[in-house]
């Protein structure tokens, strides 16, 4: 069984982004970029399934600019066998990405697609569900445990209030939550090996997908600033302030 793992190049999670003064977006020029943290977890899970012998091949996919090749090399250094870049400068929204991925699913016929639950830049949390819908596959979102056996994936999901288990007939789509696994560090020898692995480049037009954005961003602003707080010297002052000034207790 093949596994397809879509990965996204995003602003590194430690960077505090700045909104551009003209309100057109956030300034990501000269900012450190990395693989979306949830996608690292997705690659790790796919590689672990391969190490268990459940999976034969792990294919990493990324959609976006040329530099996404670096993200794909990282995925291959973690253990993906080969990679596909859908190269475009267009502003890709989740529906467009889901359609590109559907075209690749039709071509590669994976038994499982593992995605991160959300990208930390647009915070959408949509692509996995949309891919499942377009391909008619069942979905196991926010997974904290995945067990694959006999054509069925048993996925433990993190839901409000606790956990639930769903059993999905393969092929299926799974999206990862933070607690699914701890991604391994990439080692230097594996980075070197990843450079030799196969990386195919295709264009959205080759896949017959129209990636025109459906949602227009009119402006991007800083969130309202909180007014500066005060330091209190001791617990008694804190209680007094909460009771008499803020009146919240």
């Amino acid at each position: 069984m093949k596994v397809l793992v879509p990965v996204k190049r995003v602003v590194d999670y430690n960077v505090k982004v700045r909104v551009k003064s003209d309100g057109t977006g956030v300034d990501i020029a000269n900012v450190k970029m990395s693989m979306n943290p949830f996608d690292e977890i997705a690659i790790e899970e796919a590689v672990r399934l391969k190490e268990k012998g459940v999976v034969t091949e792990v294919i990493a996919v990324s959609c976006g600019v040329t530099q996404c090749q670096e993200t794909l090399r990282t995925a291959m250094a973690i253990g993906a066998d080969r990679a596909i870049l859908v190269e475009t400068d267009a502003d890709l929204q989740p529906l467009a990405v889901a359609k590109l991925l559907k075209a690749l699913v039709d071509k590669e016929q994976p038994g499982l697609v593992i995605l991160g639950k959300q990208a930390i830049d647009d915070d959408c949390n949509q692509t996995g569900q949309m891919l499942a819908a377009l391909t008619g596959m069942p979905q196991g979102t926010f997974a904290s445990k995945v067990e694959v056996a006999d054509g069925v994936a048993a996925v433990t999901r993190e839901v409000d209030g606790g956990l639930e288990v769903v059993k999905l007939t393969l092929p299926a789509v799974v999206t990862t939550d933070l607690r699914l696994n701890e991604p391994r560090y990439v080692t230097l020898p594996n980075i070197m090996k990843a450079k030799k692995k196969q990386l195919d480049i295709v264009k959205p037009a080759d896949l017959g997908v129209d990636v025109a954005p459906r949602i227009k961003t009119l402006k991007v602003e800083e969130p309202p600033k909180r007014s500066a707080g005060i330091k209190v010297a001791d617990v008694a002052t804190l209680v007094d302030k909460l009771k008499n000034e803020a009146k919240v207790i």
């Binding site: 602003v11 505090k16 982004v17 909104v19 956030v26 930390i120 830049d121 647009d122 915070d123 459906r214 949602i215 227009k216 961003t217 009119l218 402006k219 991007v220 602003e221 800083e222 969130p223």
Partner: peptide, 13 residues
């Protein structure tokens, strides 16, 4: 967006 560090005004067609 960006973990609440920016607020986007968006229009759907």
């Amino acid at each position: 967006i960006y973990a609440g560090n920016a607020i986007a005004t968006v229009q759907s067609a």
